[in-house]
Design a protein around this nucleic acid. Structure first.
Lengths: 134, 134
DNA sequence: CTCTATGCAAAAACTTTGCAGGGAT
DNA sequence: ATCCCTGCAAAGTTTTTGCATAGAG
């Protein structure tokens, strides 16, 4: 995997956030892992920034969430995972290993909503067994 | 709304759980509210069981979750809500008021999964604006 | 009668906040 | 030079645990 330092640095600035080595590293970790929870990120980033604070990880997650740079994936019974915001997709969660995988979103969804309700977004999550656990 | 004490009592026993007034009351609250978080349940049940412990509410939620009697609904940025397990449906979450509504699930979903992945369940959540907030 | 559930208190786990110093623009 | 970010420590929140007593089957 090549170095995306500049890419992430730009991404942060474009969203009116300062580009710091810690933030860039967090994005790199999310890129590498695909989906990671707070502890994954913290344990991973500590390898590079030995004295980084867990509070900084939380603050940056919240800041980047608000900016829309990253997104939260909540799965029943599990800790939240985060991912870099990318083109729309759906998630597959393996009920054996707990891993989250990106999958193509359904081509179309015909949902019947009650009168007066307006939909803006649909999120689809598939639960099942992944290839490795099958 | 009629009294479903016996119904809930049976539901608990059928799932090898003891039927206690606290558990039955929790189910009644979930029935009445549709979707409630821990605090909703605790505040509501305290009206009837003044000295109930929050720990009991947590323990019963976990026990009933494991038994499959209730289910957890996790929405990004919000506290988990719980509902009584019923026939399959999808959820609509209002981005204004945060309320969760049950909606009909899509008639069909054509999802393309990677080779080797097996789907068991699909959960669809629609984000939008509810009738009251529109 | 036996075994699980409850209530209370304490502990653990998780997340946010305040502040002083450091770094980015 | 200014304002935001970081790290640390403390506080706040949320959830779990241990234990004695009460209650269900």
């Amino acid at each position: 995997m090549e170095n995306r330092y500049l890419e992430y640095s730009e991404l942060l600035k474009k969203n009116a956030l300062k580009s710091t080595p810690q933030r860039v590293a967090m994005l790199g970790i999310l890129e590498k892992m695909g989906h990671a929870d707070v502890d994954h990120i913290y344990n991973e980033i500590k390898k590079e920034f030995v004295s980084i604070s867990l509070a900084t990880v939380y603050k940056n997650i919240n800041t980047m969430l608000e900016a829309g740079i990253i997104q939260e994936i909540k799965v029943p019974q599990k800790k939240s995972k985060f991912e870099i915001t990318k083109h729309k997709h759906s998630h597959f969660i393996c009920e054996k290993c707990g891993e989250v995988f990106d999958i193509k979103r359904p081509r179309q969804l015909d949902i019947e909503l009650p009168e007066g309700f307006r939909a803006k977004e649909a999120s689809v999550m598939i639960h099942g067994v992944c290839k490795r656990c099958a």
